[in-house]
Deep mutational scan, measured.
Amino acid sequence: VFVDDHLLEKVLELNAKGEKRLIKTWSRRSTIVPEMVGHTIAVYNGKQHVPVYITENMVGHKLGEFAP
C-alpha cells in the first residue's frame, strides 16, 4: 500500500496529539489507511483543495477518487 511519507507523518502526528484539523495535500495517489479515519483531508483536484472527510468505508481507496 502506498502513502506519501509527508502525509502519513502529518496524520500520525495529529493522532498522537489527539487533534483533528484540516490537512492539505497534493498527493491524490496516496491510499487511504485506517490511521486517517476521522480526519478531514483537503485533496487538490488541479484547481482547488476539496475537503474530504475520511470514513471507514474509504480505507483501501485512493484520495484522488474522492476529489473529482
Rank of each mutant, 00 (worst) to 15 (best):
A42H: 06
G64M: 09
V37W: 05
T40P: 01
I41S: 00
Y53D: 11
K24Y: 15
K24I: 12
L22A: 09
E65T: 12
V11C: 06
A42L: 07
I41N: 00
K24R: 13
G18Y: 03
V52Y: 03
V50P: 04
V33K: 04
D4P: 03
K62E: 13
G18M: 08
I23W: 01
F66I: 06
E19P: 03
A67G: 07
K17V: 11
S30C: 06
V1N: 15
K24C: 15
E56H: 11
G38A: 10
K10R: 08
I54K: 00
F66C: 05
P68S: 08
L7A: 01
V43N: 00
V50I: 14
A67R: 03
H49G: 07
H61S: 12
D5R: 15
R21P: 06
I23C: 03
S30F: 02
N15E: 04
N45K: 08
W26M: 08
E65W: 08
T40A: 10
V3W: 05
I41Y: 01
Y53H: 13
E56R: 13
V33E: 02
T55Q: 14
L7F: 01
G64S: 06
F2D: 12
P34Y: 12
D4T: 01
T25E: 01
R29I: 15
S30V: 02
H49W: 13
V11E: 01
P51Y: 06
M58V: 05
K20L: 09
R29C: 15
P51R: 13
L63W: 00
G64C: 14
K10D: 10
R21Y: 09
F2P: 06
E65F: 11
E35L: 13
I23A: 01
G18P: 02
H61F: 14
R21C: 15
G38Q: 06
I54S: 00
E65N: 08
T31R: 09
G38K: 05
T25W: 03
Y53G: 09
L14C: 08
R28H: 06
L8A: 03
I41F: 06
I54N: 00
R28M: 05
V43R: 00
H49T: 04
G18A: 08
E13L: 08
I23L: 08
P68R: 10
G60K: 06
L63N: 01
K20I: 07
E9D: 09
L63H: 00
L7W: 01
V43P: 06
D5N: 15
H6Y: 15
T31E: 07
V1Q: 14
I23T: 02
V11Q: 01
I41K: 00
V1T: 13
D5V: 15
S27Q: 04
